[in-house]
Design a protein around this nucleic acid. Structure first.
Length: 431
RNA sequence: GUCCCCAUCGUCUAGCCUGGUCUAGGACAAGAGCUUUUCAAGCUCUCGACACCGGUUCAAAUCCGGUUGGGGACGCCA
């Protein structure tokens, strides 16, 4: 039975790279009917924070990665000490006493060649003569990362260690410890790192790093997962949009790339738009409502959900992120709209009083105020005036929305309602 | 500095293992156009890569070596 683990350290948020490591572990486990284990590596008592644990767990849940077991290393200190004693008894470790009299347990590294077979990279050979003796238990009694990791992976019966590239150099140290303690050595698979746009490591200065930030920005978890999946793995057949269920069928750890990938926000945006388009409008509305409340565009206690739903449908295909909606659709909620200066200059610098007045009259006289009737009325006017439709459409859009881009004009007028449309047009009519 | 990993369009990648089917395919981005209602949606087209040098071979993106470049690790952090 396949057993894999994701082992984050709660000294920070769940990173985009961590998210991808979790993804590949989860995918591997689920595609092999195995177990996905979560292990919180909180041995550094001063740097580990409960709020980070919360954050990591909620990010994993948001991404859709459920775990079968969860462990906290801070509750297992006795176990590590026990195994350190065993190493001592076997004679492969020694005690080092510091000046203040505290004792650390150190593993003695003997020069040899260690060969590991990485599932992604193939054979890697290390010479342990360049590795220093390894601390197992620090003088404060807590275990070191490499030691706790080995003991836990062995005790938790982890069959495959799938982790970031940055752990390659830890691998020979760990193999040494597995052998010393008589544990079977698991299989290793080292994932390439995700690099920042300009090269180098991802950092706050080079864009969003935490999964939760992407959530806040309005990305869908399915889209982010799809994006992460494509960073280092291809489903074949030139496919770009693939959901996790199908990825489970096609995924093979051996097909994961060796090359580090650069984070490309443009591609993420495109993928997110693809998912947004096929998202259930009702669900999207649920996501959008809190944003509208926050901006005070709607009243939490009293708003028309059906109306918001209609507007969501109007913008859905164009949204890059969910959070675009409040900005792009603001004119449906604001009493006073702000007109983009450039748009005003381009479309409303000419006096259109006559045209606007005509249109207002036609809107007034409509028996049925619906999209087809509005358009019919508009078409008649441009025919009468003998002008191109766009000559009038763009100025009207700017007058009604304040923007040069948006949904189709007649839908905009319909959902704005007769009175508001007339009112906004009237502002540009000189008496 | 030492050790390790990596190397196809600007970016993500297919192809590489099992050399010829590759004048290297797709996607994002960019550019051009269409959509006689915008684009932030849609459609069409264009631009654009096997890092370099040697070797093996009838034949190399594919195999081998080196160079260069990028990345990572060298903590009583994880």
């Amino acid at each position: 039975m396949v057993r894999v683990r994701f082992a984050p350290s709660p000294t920070g948020n769940l990173h985009i790279g961590g998210g991808r490591t979790a993804l590949f572990n989860w995918l591997f486990a689920r595609s092999k009917q195995g177990k996905f284990i979560l292990r919180i590596e909180d041995t550094d008592l001063t740097r580990s924070k409960p709020e980070f644990i919360e954050e990591i767990l909620s990010s994993l849940k948001w991404l859709g990665f459920d775990w079968d077991e969860i462990y906290y290393q801070s509750r297992r200190f006795e176990i590590y000490k026990e195994y350190a004693q065993k190493a001592l008894q076997k004679g492969c470790a020694y005690i080092e006493r510091s000046e203040d009299g505290r004792e650390a347990i150190i593993y003695k590294v003997i020069p040899e060649k260690i060969k590991i077979t990485d599932l992604i990279r193939g054979e890697i050979v290390f010479d342990t003569s360049v590795i220093k003796d390894q601390v197992l238990i620090k003088s404060d009694g807590t275990p070191t990362y490499n030691f706790a990791c080995v003991v836990d992976d062995a005790l938790m019966e982890i069959t495959h260690v799938i982790r970031g590239d940055d752990h390659i150099s830890n691998t020979p140290k760990q193999v040494l410890l597995y052998r010393a303690l008589g544990f079977p050595v698991p299989q290793f698979a080292h994932l390439p790192l995700i690099l920042a746009k300009g090269g180098g490591r991802m950092s706050k200065r080079k864009g969003a790093t935490a999964i939760s930030e992407y959530r806040m920005m309005g990305y869908l978890p399915e889209a982010l997962v799809n994006f992460l999946l494509l960073l280092g793995w291809a489903p074949g057949g030139n496919r770009e949009i693939i959901d996790i269920k199908e990825a489970m069928k096609l995924f093979d750890i051996k097909n994961v790339n060796k090359t580090a990938a650069v984070m490309d926000m443009d591609k993420l945006d495109w993928i997110n738009n693809q998912y947004l388009k096929s998202e259930d409008p009702v669900r999207l509305t649920e996501a959008v409502v809190p944003l509208l409340i926050e901006k005070q565009y709607i009243d939490k206690a009293d708003f028309d959900r059906e109306y918001v739903l209609s507007l969501v449908k109007l913008f859905q295909a164009r949204l890059t992120v969910i959070n675009d909606f409040p900005d792009w659709a603001d004119f449906f909620f604001l009493k006073e709209i702000t007109v983009d200066p450039a748009a005003k200059e381009k479309y409303l610098s000419r006096d259109l009083s006559r045209e606007f007045k005509l249109f207002i009259e036609r809107l007034d006289n409509l028996d049925r105020f619906d999209i087809t009737e509005i358009e019919a009325a508009f078409r008649e006017i441009v025919a009468d005036l003998n002008i191109q439709a766009k000559v009038l459409i763009h100025p009207i859009r700017v007058a009604l929305t304040g923007k040069t881009v948006g949904p189709g004009l007649f839908e905009v007028i319909y959902y704005l309602g007769r009175e508001r449309a007339k009112e906004r047009l009237l502002k540009w009519v000189k008496q």
